[in-house]
């Protein structure tokens, strides 16, 4: 048993070494909340390893040694001290620590407020600014060092909002509003996920959480607030309207004002397509329009397989200009 265990520890150690990058890593320390929880985890992990070794070691020792019935008194006291007193004190201390940590990482208000609404299977994102709401989707940009308060809702089923590298997760429950505070520390494009199973394409409900320098963030937000610059006779926009895309999607500043699907006003400015799934390239865009369900099964958006050739190119070209 001993040899097997050491091999297993080795495996854990190697994977631990190999696993410190990764855009979804809790231990990346990219947010203050994640870092606080990460510190807790490190201590818990070391403590658990020590206790496990002691308990299993005691069992192995007890199994291997010769019988000493004279030790009955010691064995019984071992139950009291090892099995009762020590755990009560240790666990009590842990509980108090956990409670204070919880108190520390929750907040009622932040430097900015972002409303996120979980949909099957994408994210409707609304920044609350003094000049009004700024609506976008599937990508959340955050200023470094500022606490963002997320107000989370859902329309259809329960989802959960999670950016592991920045902090803990929070459910999005229909009929309720939950909140989560995140304070990013490290610049970068961190992964966001839906953590609560929401049926169908749950696995493909992702987003990018991009942490930016505060100045760059302000610039981006101001640009995001603008309407799209679309010429009335833009041929791509005509295809967009003819195919009925505007019934579901909004492009602010045009007559396309569908409330169902993601807002496309600055679609091409996002890094990913399909709720955090595919690089934003014309090729992916063309495939997304014509063969939607192969890229993301079960979603509400219907595929447009009849679109091809120049008509498709025009539409893709138009969409890729929505920056």
């Amino acid at each position: 048993m001993r040899r097997g265990t050491s091999i297993l520890f080795g495996v854990l150690f190697l994977t631990a070494l190999g696993g410190c990058d990764g855009r979804h890593n809790w231990m990346a320390g990219a947010g203050e909340e994640a870092a606080a929880i990460g510190d807790l985890f490190l201590i818990l992990m070391v403590g658990a390893a020590v206790i496990w070794s002691l308990v299993v070691g005691a069992a192995v020792y007890a199994h291997r040694r010769r019988a000493h019935p004279g030790l009955e008194r010691e064995a019984r006291l071992f139950v009291i001290w090892g099995g009762v007193v020590f755990p009560v004190l240790l666990i009590g201390a842990l509980l108090v620590w956990g409670l204070f940590l919880l108190k520390g990482i929750t907040a009622d208000e932040g430097d900015l407020t972002v409303r996120v609404d979980g949909e099957r299977w994408w994210w409707r994102v609304t920044y609350e600014t003094p000049t009004g709401d700024v609506v976008t989707a599937n990508e959340i940009r955050l200023p470094q060092g500022r606490t963002a308060l997320f107000r989370l809702t859902a329309d259809d089923v329960i989802h959960a909002f999670w950016v592991p590298a920045l902090g803990g997760k929070m459910d999005m429950v229909p009929g309720r509003e939950t909140t989560l505070a995140l304070t990013p520390k490290k610049l970068g494009n961190w992964g966001g996920l839906c953590a609560e199973f929401c049926g169908g394409a749950h696995a493909l409900m992702r987003f990018d959480a991009v942490v930016m320098a505060p100045d760059a963030f302000e610039t981006w937000l101001a640009r995001e607030a603008e309407t799209a610059q679309v010429a009335a006779d833009d041929p791509g926009f005509q295809v967009f309207l003819d195919e009925g895309c505007g019934a579901c999607h909004t492009i602010r500043g045009t007559q396309a004002a569908g409330p169902v699907g993601p807002d496309l006003t600055h679609l091409a400015g996002r890094e990913k397509l399909g709720a955090g799934l595919y690089e934003m390239t014309p090729e992916h865009m063309a495939r997304w329009i014509t063969d939607t369900h192969a890229m993301k099964p079960d979603i509400d958006m219907p595929p447009y397989p009849h679109l091809s050739g120049p008509r498709l190119d025009t539409l893709v070209d138009f969409l890729m200009r929505l920056e």
Binding site: V88, G92, L95, V96, L99, F100, K103
Partner: peptide, 14 residues
Amino acid sequence: AVAIVFTVIPGLVF
């Protein structure tokens, strides 16, 4: 009794 003390702790913290 120990479990009750544990339950009281959150009341003190929050």
